[in-house]
Amino acid sequence: MTKQEWPLYEVFIRSRSGLSHRHAGSVHAADDEMALNNARDTYTRRSEGVSIWVVRSDRIVASDPAETSAFFDPAEDKIYRHPTFYEIPDEVENL
């Protein structure tokens, strides 16, 4: 008999159309189809979703929390990307 557990899938749910999918949790399943069914039974028992994505957890590529500052650093000193960087006289409207 097999001792190995079923693979883990991450579950993403769109709660209603117009909104993005959002991470809900995870489920174990033998295959993709079962992962969808298990995700539905586990995370949408009260109509919390209109669409579900499932993806094998080991297929997700994630940034490393230990490297967070270095990884996101390039954006930190570019304050000119924000509209508040620019000084516009008060009398100029609609800008």
Partner: peptide, 11 residues
């Protein structure tokens, strides 16, 4: 146990 095994074999 047999259900889990069968599902895995099918997958």
């Amino acid at each position: 146990a047999w259900v889990r095994e069968a599902a895995r074999a099918y997958a």
